[in-house]
Design a binder for these strands. Structure first.
Length: 493
RNA sequence: CGGGGUGUAGCACAGUUGGUUAGCGCGCUACGUUCGGGACGUAGAGGUCGGGCGUUCGAGUCGCCUCACCCCGACCA
């Protein structure tokens, strides 16, 4: 599929179709009857759960605690921070009534007009407002700080156009909300979390990312600074995979959250928020998939190894099962999640294809021929290479191979990104090359006008100003004005 | 909200200038043979043709309206 991908991107209708089919065929999710929403199926959810557990553990190691806040936000809360409302107003679902009644004309039920809410409630597009409304009651002294809270929740944004996992009306995510006594501490936390995300995405999802700062245009509504991790998909488009926002004192002031500092003076608290969503699932699919379906990095695969028996009758199956049992046990001892699929209702060929579609990293197949020879067949999902190996020591071999797959998936994605990252200084060259996708390292004069012009001309946006990028004197490729460093420009999802 | 497209079985589709009882493939059920890369045979079940109104002796097919979904733009994790 990787080969086809390039051609398909030229016609995004086909590419969307490919993507949707893959999601459905790999049994991850399907479109729901509700506009723009999706049903995440057990297999897809198992992957999300694994991501959730891993992230949750990482958060807690930095002192973050989980909590839960209401789904519904009073309209007045959302209006408190001016930029914030403006950012989300266009995509909110609103609760206006609290009761239905039988239709007087006898056709089912209708909204009871008498049950109109005095104040409308907004289904959260994000929880800053309700959380800061609550934090006001929790924070009084510098001794209450820092307050490090995370919430696992669903949010709703009434998007015009949706695509499974990448942009759905309802999506699952975590949103961290921290309150600090000083600006420095809050900034430090903001950066810490973007680093944590990068660590997770690279080491568990095997997706290389570029850490950077968003331009003012692309910043979160109400933030003074937004950090981002940007990944490149196989078609050369960028995907914003996680963000961490330094909110300054904006929300504290809007919600009147003050504390007595060490000098016994009232001060507004310093805030940040950070989040990743089920969009990461989309990144996973679009980064690693190939002709035969999904490819899962072992660190996230719900099933790391599947064992398929090949048999002609029950007696043979019994023999094989006997040989498989110790392998399963050994793998489990090594911490490998393994499934022995002895289901009788599917033929081996079907199972092979099916587990490939689902991205299971390693498949072991054992038949009568192997039993005679004391061998077993191992196939790697990433390379599709098959090897016949001695049963002796297979568990250790598999465990090592899993690590190798994890690593080579990352390396493969990194190579793809490097191969499609270009330093460009001429706007004409940029306009030509952007058509084929990729990341472009370019000089930019730092103005919103230039940024807007690039977007209008090419549909590409400044993804970020990379962190740790070397200073380099240059001139803006559009205006010729001086620039101190290169930024990353790309088309994105 | 603008432009384009599609609605026919669980899925994916065909259905001629309007003509009798609406079809193919996949999937599903039963039985048998199979089982080392998505098996095959035989028999079966499954449809308010998205909805409404109209034209007509007759509408899946023509006209109008409406709804839903998909794609392209604007918006976005």
């Amino acid at each position: 599929m990787a080969k086809e991908l390039k051609d398909l991107t030229k016609r995004s209708e086909d590419y969307s179709k490919w993507y949707n089919e893959l999601v459905v065929k790999a049994d991850l999710a399907e479109q729901s009857a509700v506009r723009g929403c999706m049903v995440i199926k057990p297999y897809g959810y198992a992957i999300w759960e694994k991501m959730q557990q891993t992230l949750d553990k990482m958060f807690k190691e930095t002192g973050v605690q989980n909590a839960y806040f209401p789904l519904l936000i009073p309209k007045s809360y959302l209006c408190r921070e001016a930029e914030h409302v403006e950012g989300f107003a266009k995509e909110c679902a609103i609760v206006t009534h609290y009761r239905l009644k039988n239709d007087p004309d006898g056709k089912g039920v209708v909204v009871d007009p008498a049950a109109r809410l005095e104040e409308e409630l907004i289904i959260r597009p994000t929880s800053e407002t309700i959380i800061w409304g609550t934090f006001k009651n929790w924070i009084h002294s510098y001794r209450d700080l820092p307050l490090l809270i995370n919430q696992w929740a669903n949010v709703m944004r009434w998007e015009m156009r949706t695509r499974m996992f990448l942009r759905t009306s309802e999506f699952l995510w975590q949103e961290g909300h921290c309150a600090h006594a000083t600006a420095e501490e809050s900034e430090k936390r903001t950066v810490q979390m973007i680093n944590l995300y990068a660590d997770f995405v690279e080491n568990y999802m095997a997706i290389p990312v570029i850490k950077g700062v968003k331009t003012a245009n692309e910043r979160f509504a109400g933030a003074i600074n937004t950090y981002t991790i940007e990944a490149m998909m196989q078609d050369g488009k960028a995907l914003q995979s996680g963000t961490s926002h330094n909110l300054g004192q904006n929300f504290a002031k809007a919600f009147d959250v003050t504390f007595m500092n060490k000098e016994n003076k009232p001060e507004s608290v310093w805030a940040n928020s950070w989040g990743v969503s089920t969009r990461l699932m989309g990144a996973l699919i679009m980064t690693h998939s190939d002709d035969n379906g999904l490819v899962l990095p072992p660190h996230l695969a719900p099933i790391q190894v599947v064992i398929v028996p090949i048999y002609k009758n029950n007696a043979q199956l019994e023999e094989i099962s006997k040989a498989v049992a110790p392998i399963v046990e050994k793998l489990k001892k090594l911490g490998v999640s393994v499934k022995y699929d002895d289901a009788d209702n599917k033929r081996p060929g079907f199972k092979f294809a099916d587990y490939e579609l689902k991205g299971v990293p390693i498949r072991l197949a054992l038949g009568a021929r192997d039993l005679e020879n004391g061998t077993i067949e191992m196939m790697r999902r990433d390379t599709l290479e098959k090897q016949t190996l001695p049963i002796e020591g297979i568990a250790e071999k598999v465990a090592a191979e899993l690590e190798d797959i994890q690593n080579s998936l990352y390396q493969r994605a990194l190579k793809l990104r490097n191969d499609r990252t270009y330093k460009v200084d001429s706007y004409d060259e940029f306009k030509e090359k952007i058509e084929d996708g990729g990341f472009f390292l370019c000089h930019w004069d730092g103005t919103a006008e230039t940024e807007e012009k690039i977007k209008e001309d090419t549909k590409a946006t400044i993804r970020c100003i990379p962190l740790g990028g070397e200073e380099e004197e240059g001139v803006c490729m559009v205006t010729g004005k001086p620039s101190k460093r290169r930024v990353i420009i790309a088309r994105s999802y």
